[in-house]
Amino acid sequence: MPGQNEWFDQLYREHSARLFKQAYYVLHNSHLAEDLVEETFLILLYKQQDLVKHPNLAGWLSLTLKNLICDELKSARHRLEMPLISDDSATCVDTYHQPLDELLPKGLLPKEREILILLFEEQLSYDEIAQHLGISVLSCRTRAFRAKAHYKVLIRDAENKF
């Protein structure tokens, strides 16, 4: 359908900053807020055909983000937090000096590995990564979201094997 990219880009430009503020206000974590806003827009992208004629897309985006935030807060209550530094060095594996590339699962595609390394090890912003890779910021965010999702699937599958 012609004009889909323009429609999506326009919505992203109009609403992403407001949605980020909404998520950050609740979560107090800019990275998590950014991820949930990106996930909101990916849901919009997947449901684009059904939502093109929606009478209140701003409200739909806000409600979708609110639901993602609620899901995140619920799952965070049950997540086990591990300290970064342990007093018992004999039982602790030293991963601090290991490059991220060695810690990532083998099933990731080279493009996925690259974007995760730039994002988490190099700690580059989406703008910097997009410039480095020669792609748009929206493509960068989408690629990062998909890489994180694939990583989660690979880790979950590895955990289920044991």
Rank of each mutant, 00 (worst) to 15 (best):
K106Y: 02
Q123R: 15
D127R: 13
L133A: 07
E114Q: 14
L104W: 05
A144M: 02
P105M: 13
H150N: 11
K111C: 08
I135H: 11
E159G: 00
L109C: 08
F145C: 08
S125M: 04
E112M: 02
I115L: 08
K161C: 13
Q123N: 15
H132S: 08
A158W: 07
A144Q: 06
E112K: 04
R143H: 10
A130F: 05
N160K: 15
K111H: 07
E102S: 15
S139D: 12
K106V: 09
I155M: 13
R146P: 00
P105W: 12
E159P: 00
A158Y: 08
I129D: 06
L118A: 05
L138T: 11
L118W: 03
I117R: 14
L108H: 05
E122A: 14
E121K: 12
A130H: 06
K161W: 05
E122K: 15
E102R: 15
L133K: 13
E159N: 08
K111Y: 03
E122M: 09
P105L: 11
K106N: 08
E114D: 12
A144T: 13
L103H: 06
R113E: 07
L154K: 10
Y126R: 01
V153P: 00
L116S: 09
R141L: 04
V153G: 00
V153F: 03
I129E: 04
Q123V: 10
P105Q: 07
L124Y: 03
R141P: 10
L108G: 09
E112V: 05
K148M: 14
I135T: 14
F145P: 00
A144H: 05
L104Q: 09
V137Q: 14
K148R: 15
G107T: 05
Y126S: 12
S136E: 05
L109R: 14
A130S: 12
H150D: 06
I135N: 06
K106C: 03
L124A: 06
H150T: 07
K148S: 11
L103Q: 11
I117H: 08
Q123Y: 02
E114V: 03
F145H: 13
D157V: 01
L154N: 06
D127S: 10
Q123H: 14
L133P: 12
F120A: 07
K152S: 06
L119N: 14
E102K: 15
K111R: 12
N160W: 03
I115T: 12
K106G: 03
Q131L: 15
L138W: 01
A144N: 03
K152Q: 09
Q123P: 00
S136R: 09
